[in-house]
Design a protein around this nucleic acid. Structure first.
Lengths: 148, 148
DNA sequence: TTAAGTGCAAACGCTTTGCAGTTCA
DNA sequence: TGAACTGCAAAGCGTTTGCACTTAA
């Protein structure tokens, strides 16, 4: 059992849930990926280890992990499938390049700044900040230098 | 013809489109609402004026208006229907209270700050910023003062 | 007059659910 | 052993699409 699976087990047990095959498989895919994945992508990766795991179990596992705060859902645009990624303790935001399509993850004080701004000026206590910025990444704005 | 319908007509004509009944009806609902509405909510309001207008025409109108930059789509959470609202020239963001469920619109320099931060520090040229903050609004954090 | 736009109904993709069978604790 | 969990298939929801009909310009 890997270190990360051990972490999963304690999180599950603490919340009164079981450690099962499908949950381990889903967890290892998400925890082993740098990026955010759709349920279908996760299911595909899971199936390469265990072809019997069903897509609905992937959804159920992801929903449970989200409840437990282990993973995080992101909407990366209208009518796009939900993406999941490991819930890092430091808040993150997404930069989506409309030229190359890549979605970068950024960590920074921006999210903390937003939270304290809202708390100080509007009395709003933020528990979650979702920030999706669409535009041109550094590489693409160089190569497409005629564009805005 | 109202002033806002006249604006719609010039935007449509300029882009080579026609001013039609369904488009006027959809436009007046969206332009006359302070908040963001789902396609179904817009269709319902439209039908009270003209019951023959179909939901798919509402979608088609909204897609066109979005292309023309007249309205703006928002995703207010995973698996929630898309919401539409008038595209104000000043960028906005959403504050969603998890206690009362209300979604407030805020205008402010926050979005501009984010854009210049990303441009200066990461070379990322933002064309669109979607910021959704979930938490407790000022009223609710007073009444639920035991909560975080 | 005729290309653009519409209503209708069917299909779509992502996600959830009911249920009977399986499995972890 | 028994409640939690799973696979399966069907249904759900928001949204899109093909097509014949209608309408704005």
């Amino acid at each position: 059992m890997t270190e990360s699976t051990r972490e999963l087990r304690s999180a599950l047990v603490e919340a009164g849930h079981r450690l099962t095959g499908p949950r381990i498989a889903v967890w290892e895919v998400v925890a082993g990926s740098e990026s955010h994945l759709t349920a279908e992508e996760i299911a595909e990766a899971v199936r390469s280890a265990d072809p019997t795991v069903n897509l609905s179990s992937v959804y159920r596992s992801l929903a449970l992990f989200t409840d437990l705060g282990l993973v995080r859902e992101s909407n990366l645009g209208a009518n796009e499938a939900t993406h999941w990624e490991l819930a890092h303790p430091d808040e993150q935001f997404h930069l989506k390049c409309k030229a190359c399509g890549r979605v970068e993850h950024h960590t920074g004080d921006l999210v903390t700044q937003i939270e304290s701004h809202l708390s100080d000026h509007h009395g709003f206590k933020a528990s979650r900040v979702e920030l999706l910025v669409t535009g041109m990444c550094a590489e693409c704005s160089q190569s497409h230098s005629s564009n805005t």
